[in-house]
Design a protein around this nucleic acid. Structure first.
Lengths: 334, 334
DNA sequence: ACTACTAATGCTCGTTTTGAGTATTATAAA
DNA sequence: TTTATAATACTCAAAACGAGCATTAGTAGT
């Protein structure tokens, strides 16, 4: 039968939280803008700039987001895109905690900053404080062998009493899929999948916060990255996944660059995001032949060697090519 | 200064609408599940299955979505993913209409159906009823030359009084970018961009519904596709964009296939989604060498020619490859 | 001024992937 | 048996890619 319009009193209404993962790169280190927020009972937690959406004051969701960020940090950013809408701040948070229910919408913003920009509040933190296992800048991070994989394997071996016997993929398979153990390839885009697996295994602090009944069995501790308030670390993981995927088919990398840059600076920025593994000459061939950049005619000296030509982003490329981006192949090996 | 927690009475709360664009393919025609809904004042409009999210009854957003779809159509689907959260049902709807404010979350579901499946309510409609300019199955659709592009070009020429003089991209550029006029390539993924441009130009009926002051100047009429209730056509456009993009790097196409299928049936399904332009022999080489499928050993006779081997989806491929999908190049020409 | 060092840039080359054919084979229908 | 139709097999050139060597134009030190 057909659904009757709900009367005014029955409209189920919820609060909407807007959250911004604002990413930048500071001398080859990928960073995110963090504010400290006082959560209930515990001390100040790392938090993304965020605030509730109030339709009376904000004409659109994005305007609301920008005004919260401005108020909390003083930053005005350019590029922003919506990431995902999460239905519960901690996925396993118990029902009695959720009244009123909060739905959080995560956004990704990209911005170029240099030391001249002053934040009123908040500070830039490396991504890898929150996701140390994602830091492949100096090769495969040792935390994988010493901590992450052993704990995950132990979890995969645990008897699973309350779960359906015919799960589509079993725990070991999922560990292999997310972390590329035993011959599987490491996929730098699976940041969210890895975080969610660690959450499900009860290893990240947020899992113990949301499900205290598992705290003893699985004490994770700080070696699983710095925790964040509510579901903010999950939003940040989503943001990192999205940037890593998106620079391959959209020219969003230039949102992180100054107006003029050398090709090597561009490569270093890409590598800060994806992990370092690009062949310098081929990278240059790639971005030039794709028409992503054009020389400004200027050069930058004091590079330590031969002066480097300066380039700028060719905005017209979006008119010419269907999927302009730094088209590095998925799943290259390092 | 820091944001104080809002008191219970001040919590700005909104209604959340859950909307499902459920896609399938019925003999090489891409279809979406439509229900008829009575909007205020006008008659029954085409609508996506949808309903409000009520946290008391639905543990997660997705569970809420599934239960509305089941109630309204009797269908249980498998694969679903979130698309986007829209802050206003019609983007330019006037403020006084939005109380309480509705935020709609769009979902994409993919399902295989055959004639044996019976819907309790609702019916399958071709995508192209709503987006005739997207129908490239018989070459470039004539509606582009006869109707869409002339009207858009007229709009691009219009004096733009109230707009900022330094718009980053002007109207003509945007028409060219979205519709590939004058040498630009047609990008089959830009379904949403094209719909939003037509909305902004006041050509689709929804624009006139939301902004009656433009109705006279821009009467669009039914040649711009069948309109839908609220922002449902925008959600459908988002869904089509997403499927068209996603089958290229994730094996979601198999959600639309039966358990066993021939390679040509698979190709026809891909072409139903993307437009028909694939080279048969190369398509076969592509999916086989990517390990996406494996032969079942059976053959299908009465194909009209030589019997075709039957294949099934190799689920293991997601463990092996970082981005398994039908990796057709972006922006191939037909 | 000359030399050593460094990083940018230019170029080559073998391999892989892709696009576009032609040729062959196994059925159903006439 | 013939014919039509599609499935399947194979070929080949062009383009893209990965990896390396070679050259150049600066800086810093003598």
């Amino acid at each position: 039968m057909r659904r009757e319009p709900l009367s005014r009193k029955d409209v189920p209404s919820v609060e909407i939280g807007l959250n911004a993962a604002i990413a930048s790169v500071h001398n080859d280190e990928p960073v995110v803008l963090i504010v400290k927020e006082t959560a209930d009972s515990v001390g100040a937690s790392d938090s993304l700039p965020s605030g509730p959406f109030s339709p009376r004051q904000h004409r659109t969701l994005e305007i609301g987001l920008r005004s919260w960020v401005r108020e909390q940090t003083g930053l005005d950013f350019g590029y922003v895109e919506q990431l995902y809408t999460f239905g519960d701040r901690g996925r396993h948070a118990r029902a009695e905690d959720r009244d009123p229910h909060v739905v959080s919408i995560g956004y990704l913003a990209l911005t170029h900053t240099d030391s001249a920009d002053d934040l009123q509040r908040g500070s830039w933190h490396s991504w890898y404080e929150y996701f140390p296992w994602e830091d492949w800048r100096r090769g495969r991070p040792s935390i994988l062998e010493t901590t992450v994989l052993p704990r995950l394997k132990a979890w995969a071996q645990m008897p699973q009493m309350h779960e359906a016997p015919s799960r589509p993929i079993d725990r070991s398979e999922r560990v292999r899929m997310c972390f590329g153990a035993e011959g599987g390839a490491w996929d730098e885009e699976k940041v969210l999948d890895r975080y969610e697996l660690l959450y499900e295994a009860g290893l990240v602090d947020e899992a113990q916060r949301d499900r205290p009944e598992f705290a003893v069995a699985n004490s994770g501790g700080p070696q699983f990255g710095t925790p964040m308030i509510f579901d903010h670390r999950r939003i940040l993981a989503t943001a990192i996944s999205r940037v890593r995927a998106k620079i391959k088919y959209r020219p969003v990398i230039f949102e992180l660059m100054p107006q003029e840059f050398t090709l090597y600076e561009l490569q270093k920025t890409v590598e800060a995001i994806l992990g370092p593994h690009l062949h310098k000459q081929n990278f240059r061939r790639l971005v030039e032949s794709a028409g992503l950049v054009e020389p400004t005619g200027q050069v930058k000296t004091r590079t330590g060697g031969r002066p480097a030509k300066l380039f700028r982003f060719r905005r017209e490329v979006v008119l010419e090519r269907p999927a302009p981006g730094v088209r590095v192949k998925p799943g290259r090996q390092l």
